[in-house]
Amino acid sequence: MLGYLQGLKGSGSGSEQLPSDIYSEIFADVLVAAKENGCKTNGQEKPEGFSMLRSFDSEASNQLEPPAATDADVWIFGYGSLVWKADFPYINRRRGFVWGYKRRFYQHSIDHRGIPERPGRVVTLLPGDPGQDRVYGVAYRIAANQKGAVLDHLDYREKNGYERCSLEFHGYPNTTASGEEPIQVIMYVATQANDSYAGDVWQVPCIAKQIFSSAGPSGPNREYLFNLAAAMEHLFPGAVDEHLEELVACVKRHIAEDEPNLMRHALLQEISGILQEKQLPEQAKRLEKLLERCQQPGGREWLLHGALQSRSEA
């Protein structure tokens, strides 16, 4: 980087042109990577992580030798990230739904898809029409001798405002067609009483903007949204979730229409600030750190959040 800066300044480029030159030569590829990572077109294959969804029925368990089922087993219902990210041992799993609830991105995430100063948005359940509203998801059967460890793991994973409750789960597409009786499941719901509950104070456009510009230790918030939408499309064809579909459309629109300009503006500002340093070695060091941060998970969202804040304050 130092050699590049020395050569660039020796070429006679004016100080006003330097940020654009550095951006074009070194940072422009960040935009391409951001676009490819953030949103795939309908014609592209699902992410590699969805191989387990493509083989849902043929791979019932995630254990090589699952324990035998017993009456002491418990079922866990997942309607968010648990649908595609079951990081715990289970005997088998079923597709299905619970009656009388609506899935909404009304919970702030400060430990998975966001951080305390830039929260993301994840799903919780709200009471709905008992005879009309369904929430589709996956129920996992947990062996009696594994349920203590699994529930402890999930209590920690869902610690930011989620509480356990119990509900009836119906097989997909419906109980009558499948011939299965409803089963009792444990699920985690973030109630309005928890500190991270965001609610519908911000409607879909604002929630989408928050998802578009948030990331946390578990990855970009948009990845959570797109994974959930892909899982619903694959596992429950024909099922309608207007809230989820509106959010996906809105976030994809931000990615296509706003992200390139926001990223370019944010990077040019960062580069211009770095070039205010008097010493060339320090400039090179800070540019290397900026590039490294941009390439790390959440680097894109850090820039987007700052650019959106600058826009709103202007």
Results as ranks from 00 to 15, higher is better:
residue 183 I to E: 02
residue 196 S to K: 07
residue 178 S to L: 05
residue 207 I to T: 13
residue 194 N to A: 08
residue 203 Q to N: 05
residue 200 D to W: 04
residue 202 W to V: 11
residue 163 E to D: 15
residue 161 G to D: 01
residue 164 R to C: 05
residue 203 Q to S: 10
residue 204 V to I: 13
residue 200 D to L: 06
residue 170 H to Y: 14
residue 168 E to T: 11
residue 174 N to D: 09
residue 210 Q to H: 10
residue 194 N to V: 08
residue 178 S to D: 01
residue 201 V to W: 11
residue 203 Q to M: 05
residue 159 K to A: 02
residue 198 A to F: 13
residue 180 E to G: 00
residue 175 T to N: 07
residue 207 I to K: 15
residue 204 V to N: 09
residue 198 A to L: 11
residue 186 I to N: 07
residue 177 A to I: 01
residue 191 T to D: 12
residue 186 I to K: 08
residue 184 Q to S: 13
residue 205 P to V: 06
residue 193 A to T: 09
residue 182 P to S: 08
residue 210 Q to I: 15
residue 163 E to L: 13
residue 207 I to D: 04
residue 195 D to Q: 14
residue 159 K to G: 01
residue 187 M to W: 07
residue 204 V to C: 05
residue 164 R to Y: 02
residue 201 V to L: 14
residue 211 I to E: 08
residue 178 S to A: 09
residue 177 A to Y: 01
residue 186 I to L: 11
residue 175 T to D: 04
residue 171 G to T: 10
residue 209 K to S: 15
residue 204 V to F: 03
residue 201 V to E: 11
residue 205 P to D: 06
residue 169 F to R: 10
residue 209 K to N: 14
residue 170 H to V: 06
residue 194 N to E: 09
residue 166 S to H: 15
residue 184 Q to L: 12
residue 188 Y to R: 00
residue 175 T to H: 04
residue 159 K to T: 00
residue 184 Q to T: 12
residue 204 V to H: 06
residue 188 Y to T: 00
residue 161 G to F: 02
residue 179 G to W: 01
residue 205 P to Y: 07
residue 159 K to R: 05
residue 167 L to S: 12
residue 163 E to C: 14
residue 169 F to K: 12
residue 162 Y to D: 00
residue 183 I to Q: 08
residue 207 I to P: 06
residue 183 I to S: 06
residue 201 V to F: 11
residue 165 C to W: 14
residue 194 N to C: 14
residue 171 G to Y: 11
residue 187 M to R: 08
residue 196 S to C: 07
residue 168 E to P: 11
residue 168 E to C: 12
residue 177 A to H: 01
residue 163 E to K: 12
residue 177 A to T: 01
residue 167 L to I: 15
residue 204 V to M: 07
residue 187 M to Q: 05
residue 190 A to G: 04
residue 180 E to N: 05
residue 198 A to H: 14
residue 170 H to A: 07
residue 183 I to R: 11
residue 199 G to C: 03
residue 164 R to L: 07
residue 185 V to C: 06
residue 171 G to R: 13
residue 193 A to F: 09
residue 184 Q to V: 10
residue 179 G to K: 00
residue 210 Q to L: 13
residue 204 V to A: 09
residue 182 P to V: 05
residue 187 M to C: 11
residue 207 I to M: 12
residue 171 G to P: 03
residue 165 C to N: 15
residue 159 K to M: 01
residue 160 N to R: 03
residue 199 G to F: 03
residue 202 W to N: 10
residue 168 E to H: 14
residue 193 A to R: 13
residue 193 A to C: 05
